[in-house]
Design a protein around this nucleic acid. Structure first.
Lengths: 347, 347
DNA sequence: CGTATGAGGTAAAACGTTAAACTGCAATGG
DNA sequence: CCATTGCAGTTTAACGTTTTACCTCATACG
């Protein structure tokens, strides 16, 4: 490894001067700058981040804590964050909590189990002297990962932090559900069943509120029998859809594309054609939606934007733009409607 | 941040002693050890990696270079690597090259463009003083990312490195394709069409060899008309399948589940039932396969194992287990056969 | 008794970089 | 002519660890 000292010897100046040049400090003659830069390039010098981080007390590195890096929502959020970091001269390091046994369920049972996973990870990031932390939630309930008085600047992505000090960036569930149900209504559907997410889950609740509002605006009475709670997965959706289809409905709104998969299967078994005999709408625009036959109409999650917004929030704060702007700190990013062929018009 | 010095003052010993204790050096009395450990815990001391990395010249950190972190194969490989690293006391930091515009295509055209992306990333990792590097390839052609004489210990994951010095861990395409075609044959199919990956691609070639061998063993003549090259994506597979289905076949082997998606759609349009009128097999066991109706029979990629094996290879080398064991350095990991309902038995 | 030996430490230097204080020189202003 | 200012640097110390060399006792051995 080439060090500053070696460059200095080569150029007959002090290491400080090289450092000043590389960090854009003033007080250097143009001639020396040229000579040094040329030598730096020629010798392939690279600053040692460990020495830099030790001396400056800023590492220009942020830590990403992912509840599950293999969950389909996570990689794109990570990508969005990394893009922004790169633009602003920061680095991101990712830690994986591996919290999900299957996609839909947190595998642990007690909060203490959670903390026995989270705490070493946080400690690790502290050892890495990260300037800030972004927590990337999975789809489950949110747990208290930033206790009152958490010292490191932090942002919660894809969920709301319990601690109100921590800015959060999440999807606008209510509005998105509202829009897709509005769309179903605009296609003539008025008897709309719901395969819902888990009862008590925040996404579930917000999406139901959106559904409810869309019905209300069209003067359709909310009928609780048409709402069946499933577990975000295909299997339970299949089971609940069996019950739901005993009712007289023309459309099903599924709160996850995976669950729409269960509904598709059931309808196939019942000999009903999606997008002809019955309409199905999903949520997430997961990869699978495009491959359903017929293609699934759904809402696309703004994963990259969530990542970017989270990074912007954190980096702005680190750069001291607005240290404690106490106003709004919950940001809702809208989903994008994706129309495919699973919803037909009825009269 | 609590430092060694503060612990030292608190315990009335020198920082050296604390360091010795924490690093398990001998020459410490049991009594002092107790006292120090207790203080370390109480004060929540965490070693500063930057100081450590600077002093020792090993950082116990490896760099991961992903061609595309959002490609469906990548996160699980990353997870496999991280698990192993954690077990062995290493850390991994991920860099994303963002090389794929759509899932199937590298977006750049000239090798120089590629290097203008790769080189800064590699430099960055050097600045991070990583002890080693794992390159996680995407699905495209392999480019020369480890030039002759690359100094940092490195491993190629999910592809073969051009540089023969670099150990590589990839899927056993040939055997896997052989197995799935064997399965089709065992179900009575003898006229088996192929929706193949891009011509010239290594995965394509190996999988075709597997197909060829399976046919050969059952004394079925290889008919080039039954092999149609597509572009790994749904659309091109749909187009090629149109041509393929003009031939008299009873089964289609698709070299990617996404392509099977195109075939499913075409068959639906033609009024043919998958798993009844015609059999379809896929490859990858991508999320989507489970959601097809009927479920797609396919080969599951051993992504986690690829990650783990790559990490083992690199870490063993870093630990000096077998510095230059020149023997085998290409490792093939088998896929796992996943049976669903897309292949029926014929007589 | 004198010298090894070992146990249980400590002091100082070093890793590569940068912030702060300082230096030497020339030009400028009054 | 002297004080001030500006330029283009240099020197020194520091960041938090770990390594190397060293020190001081106490005990054992011949």
């Amino acid at each position: 490894m080439v060090t500053l000292k070696e460059i200095a010897r080569e150029c007959n100046v002090s290491p400080t001067t090289i450092s000043n040049i590389l960090n854009g400090k003033p007080k250097v003659s143009e001639e020396t700058r040229q000579r040094v830069m040329e030598t730096v390039d020629r010798m392939g010098y690279r600053p040692n981040y460990f020495a830099q981080g030790l001396r400056k007390q800023r590492t220009k590195t942020i830590g990403l804590v992912a509840e599950d890096i293999a969950q389909f929502t996570t990689p794109e959020v990570v990508e969005g964050i990394m893009n922004r970091c790169e633009e602003k001269g920061y680095r991101a390091i990712v830690k994986n909590l591996r919290l999900y046994a299957r996609w839909s369920d947190l595998w642990f049972h007690k909060e203490s189990e959670y903390h026995s996973i989270l705490d070493p990870t946080m400690k690790e990031l502290q050892s890495f002297q990260v300037d800030g932390i972004i927590y990337i939630a999975g789809h489950g309930r949110v747990i208290d990962c930033f206790p009152e008085g958490f010292k490191i600047p932090a942002v919660m992505a894809y969920a709301f932090a319990e601690n109100p000090q921590i800015p959060s960036v999440a999807i606008d569930d209510r509005k998105s559900a509202y829009e897709i149900v509005k769309y179903l209504i605009s296609k003539g559907h008025r008897k709309i069943g719901v395969i819902s997410g888990k009862e008590g889950n925040l996404h579930t609740k917000e999406r139901l509120l959106g559904y409810q509002r869309a019905l209300y605006e069209s003067r359709i009475l909310y009928n609780p029998v048409l709402v069946r709670y499933a577990g975000w997965d295909k299997e339970s959706a299949y089971q609940e859809a069996k019950e739901l289809l005993k009712q007289d409905i023309t459309a099903v709104f599924c709160m996850a594309d995976r669950m729409a998969g269960g509904v598709y299967r059931l309808l196939a078994e019942m000999g009903l054609r999606v997008g002809a005999d019955i309409a199905v709408a999903g949520f997430d625009n997961q990869d699978i939606a495009e491959y359903f036959v017929p293609g699934l109409t759904t809402m696309a999650l703004p994963l990259k934007e969530i990542g970017q917004t989270s990074a912007d929030l954190l980096l702005d704060r680190l750069e001291g733009a607005r240290a404690e702007e106490q106003g709004q700190n919950r940001f809702l990013i809208p989903c994008t409607f994706i129309e495919r062929e699973s919803v037909h018009t009825i009269s």
